[in-house]
Nucleic acid binder design. Structure first.
Lengths: 133, 133
DNA sequence: CTGGATCCCCGTAGATACTG
DNA sequence: CAGTATCTACGGGGATCCAG
């Protein structure tokens, strides 16, 4: 076995993880990130640390259960840091980690795309509805 | 305070789309895009038009139902073009529209991020599991 | 009072079988 | 080949309860 060049190693890395293989860890990761609450939570935390209640009110429509569940998953994946301050009442703050910030950049692109292209999408839906039943 | 023109007001309205409002169209759009199959389908179509069966086999683990449903939604939103060729047996091709390609760029960034950062995430999960139950 | 766990109900994803 | 139809099972939403 000859020593690998950096390029070969990079190629090898790329082929180790493939989202199109259903058993690949990158696939399950992509599925977790492709969650409607994940992008909202990460974008909400973009402005800095927030308390649980702040997140809950800034992300309209989220249930306690899903917000807690999403935050726990993000914490376990090292994307969010959870800090408990034992005051009365208890205070829990959430903030992005370095890894979380790098993901937030990508997801804010998706958020931006959605907010920008709403009109085109709505027009397309009307055309589709008119053409079909 | 200067008077707004109608055009300015319309422009202002356009920029008011906010994903954090649960009733905002951009929010429901973001939720549709934040679907685990959407990113996979769009990335699969990045290489060019594909038949239904090709998509089904390239995206391992997708059910006929969800693939059809996802493709129909993407078609209705103007992101994917569906072409039926009345051969025997019938041939159905799917390809990205211009709008779909612009979204694919964003989603492939997410795919790339997932494939790149799998190791960090797995390590974080182990640390979390070790620290907690 | 904040943050979160638990229970129950319902919608929807998913597997299977069938059709133009 | 490219879908529809049907059934079941899992996961999200809401109410309720719990700890600090």
């Amino acid at each position: 076995m000859v020593t690998m060049t950096a390029a070969q190693r990079r190629e090898d890395e790329r082929e180790r993880f493939n989202v199109f293989v259903s058993t690949c860890p990158s696939r399950t990761l992509l599925e977790r990130l492709s969650d409607k609450w994940v992008s909202l939570v990460l974008c909400a935390l973009d402005g800095g640390p927030q308390r649980y209640g702040e997140l809950r009110s800034s992300i309209a429509g989220v249930s306690q259960k899903m917000l807690t569940q999403t935050l726990r998953n993000l914490e376990a994946d090292g994307l969010v840091l959870r800090t408990v301050t034992p005051e009365v009442p208890v205070r829990v703050d959430y903030e992005l980690t370095e890894l979380g910030r790098s993901l937030q950049v990508v997801l804010s692109g998706l958020k931006q795309w959605a907010e920008t292209n709403v009109p085109e999408i709505l027009e397309a839906r009307e055309r589709y509805a008119a053409a079909n039943g």
